[in-house]
């Protein structure tokens, strides 16, 4: 009896991610959800620029590589090309989504674009070697904040779920993490709901996954998880930031 196997939507290729990086877990969760909803044949994924740039090789559904930050705009074009059939998701990091692509993110949400956004926040630019991100914590040391992020000079981190919760067009915003089994399970539930919303035509869903970067944080995978719990989660509290339809149901 098979008790555990690779999701069909996840390609059978080695991932390039560093040891201890949580991209692998998040990829798997997205693939499991695609399998469970039976939507692989109608799903089109949009890969970002950043560590997950090669995501187009890792999913078995059709994939498109977008320019840095432009994934929500590309997703809009794909979704609008066949709104009844296409299930479209973007997979983006913090630099991609919350710095260079802020306008595309906010306006896709404002339009209520019927897409699913998977936002991986690890507070650093990983692919380019560990520079300060829009989500880098105050005081956090990176290659371009070598004395720690000085909020008096470079300002404060962008809290994406909180920011988008004020956008009327956004449907569902939840911040999750994959640092332990309980959180992984909850993350899967959130990702599934974000895809289900799209299937139901409910509009823009974004799941922020607070993630680690052991390599650029300069920590072992285990220490990185501890650092996430002690530093990231207090600044980026987990939870549902908006659920338009739940609110309606409550009323």
């Amino acid at each position: 009896m098979v008790v555990f196997e690779k999701p069909h939507a996840l390609a059978d290729v080695p991932l390039h991610y560093c040891p201890g990086c949580t991209h692998g877990i998040i990829h798997r969760l997205v693939a499991e959800v695609i399998d469970e909803l039976g939507i692989e044949g109608r799903t089109i994924g949009i890969a970002p620029v950043g560590c997950s740039v090669f995501a187009y090789n890792y999913f078995n559904c059709d994939m498109i590589e977008a320019a840095h930050g432009r994934a929500p705009a590309v997703a809009t074009g794909v979704k609008r090309s066949d709104p009844e059939n296409n299930i479209v998701f973007t997979y983006q990091g913090d630099g991609d989504l919350a710095a260079i692509g802020t306008a595309e993110t906010v306006h896709a949400a404002a339009r209520g674009e019927n897409i699913t956004v998977i936002f991986v926040n690890n507070a650093i630019y990983g692919m380019t070697g560990g520079q300060m991100a829009p989500t880098t914590l105050p005081g956090q040391v990176t290659q371009t904040s070598p004395y720690g992020r000085d909020t008096s000079k470079v300002g404060f981190p962008v809290k994406v779920c909180e920011m988008l919760s004020n956008v009327d067009g956004a449907t569902y915003l939840e911040r999750v993490a994959v640092n332990n089994v309980k959180n992984v399970k909850n993350a899967k539930k959130a990702i599934k709901k974000a895809f289900q919303n799209q299937l139901d035509g409910k509009g823009f869903s974004l799941i922020e996954v607070v993630s680690t970067c052991p390599t650029n944080w300069g920590l072992t995978p285990e220490k990185a998880l501890e650092w996430l719990e002690e530093n990231m989660l207090p600044y980026y509290p987990l939870g549902v930031y908006k659920d338009k339809f739940a609110e309606k149901e409550d009323k």
Partner: peptide
């Protein structure tokens, strides 16, 4: 058809990129 006023020229051309990638005349 689709008419969409984008938030910028950058977004507009990337929407074209998406629709073209999906095989549509855009």
């Amino acid at each position: 058809g689709t008419f969409l006023q984008a938030e910028s020229e950058i977004a507009a051309i990337n929407m074209v990129y998406g629709a073209a990638a999906a095989g549509k005349r855009a």
